[in-house]
Design a protein around this nucleic acid. Structure first.
Lengths: 212, 212
DNA sequence: ACGCACATACATACCAGTCGGTATGACAAC
DNA sequence: GTTGTCATACCGACTGGTATGTATGTGCGT
């Protein structure tokens, strides 16, 4: 309980290591990121690393959790969360995501969870579970707003809020991937608008028809 | 030009190596797949491997190209391609994708291009380019049908066929990722239905409004 | 003096890529 | 039709470097 422990009970060194791990794994993925890389980027030595983490998989675990909680908090504190209308909150979220990526040039760093999910799902079951959980958390947040908005504006329209929320997460993840491959953020921004339009359709006063 | 060369001018050994490479990289990604793995899975030795490929990156290149061309051909020969109406072809594509993944239980093996894009975009520029190109090819195919369908059914609706096509690719990729993380195909199948519904909205006779 | 936080050197394993070698078949010379 | 030459296809031990993880040490706060 001395100076080495800060706010949340984590040592500063450990925090720096996790942050470096997140940064590197977001860019290069899990396997291409070495422990030495992480130590170098964090300005620490291997001794420190293995003092806090029992393995590389262990820091990946911490990285996913920290990333998930950080993003979760970021969105929880975002201005759009203060909006009272649930549909407005959904639009606010879309705006927030678009604003977060900045412009078309400045590349998104991508989502750590997305990268990890593809790479380790079949080799590290525990990490796969964490990724799934991280996706679920976002999904649930969006589901809540969707359910409220549906009750308020489109109670008779036939759609499942949870399914639309997973659709949203998929769109975001797929867009991040395309952005990384195409070296521009335009796809991500465009796709957020497509999702917005989908919402507009779902919540249109006189909803034309359900799927096919 | 003897018996060792088959149909397309590729030796059978090389083909087997590439196929094993695709299989493994789809599952574990590029970095976690070792040359020995590939040789083992293909029933070949390192000697054969390095006879045909000058490096691991080299087979990754071949794998992406082969995967891209294989999928391209698979879709080109799919029954829905025979449909005359472009909008029907779009719906046919959605059906075809859903049918391809089988049921909710049987896991998709995921898209090689998607896995590679996340993992190597920032470290192997040439592979990134190949991934981008592979995405672009699907995207262009879908764009053609969307443009024709728009001309035929919704000429005054405000949407860009190319952008909607990229939206489709993103949805598919994001869905594959979620499927891998959640160990079920339901997300992928649900999301195809959401895309179908988006199409229905875009092509609805009396289109309500453009985005926001 | 004891444990925590970190540093350094080391052990071990593994992986991409190499290298010398062999088997096979095509073609030519005679 | 046998022998010699050459190229292609393939084999598998080996190497050099690098990765994860360990063993041991050291300073410091209490």
């Amino acid at each position: 309980m001395t100076t080495r422990l800060q706010n949340n009970g984590q040592s500063e060194t450990k925090t720096k290591l996790v942050e470096a791990g997140i940064r590197l794994m977001r860019a290069k993925g899990y396997n291409a990121t070495t422990v030495d890389d992480i130590c170098g980027a964090a300005g620490m030595t291997k001794g420190a690393f293995f003092h806090y983490f029992k393995s590389k998989e262990d820091i990946a675990r911490s990285a996913i959790e920290s990333f998930r909680d950080g993003k979760s908090e970021e969105f929880q504190n975002a201005p759009f969360r203060k909006l009272e209308d649930p549909l407005a909150r959904l639009h606010g979220r879309v705006d927030f995501v678009k604003a977060s990526v900045g412009g078309p040039e400045r590349l998104t760093k991508g989502c750590l969870v997305g990268v990890m999910a593809q790479e380790v799902s079949l080799t590290h079951p525990e990490l796969r579970g964490l990724c799934q959980q991280a996706f679920a958390r976002i999904s649930e947040e969006v589901t809540r707003d969707l359910a409220l908005a549906k009750d308020a504006y489109a109670p008779q329209t036939d759609f499942d809020p949870a399914s639309v929320a997973r659709f949203y997460v998929s769109i975001f993840q797929g867009s991040s991937m395309m952005a990384k491959a195409s070296d521009t953020n335009t796809v991500l921004m465009d796709n957020m608008e497509h999702f917005r339009r989908y919402l507009n359709f779902l919540f249109a006063p006189a909803n034309p028809a359900s799927a096919k």
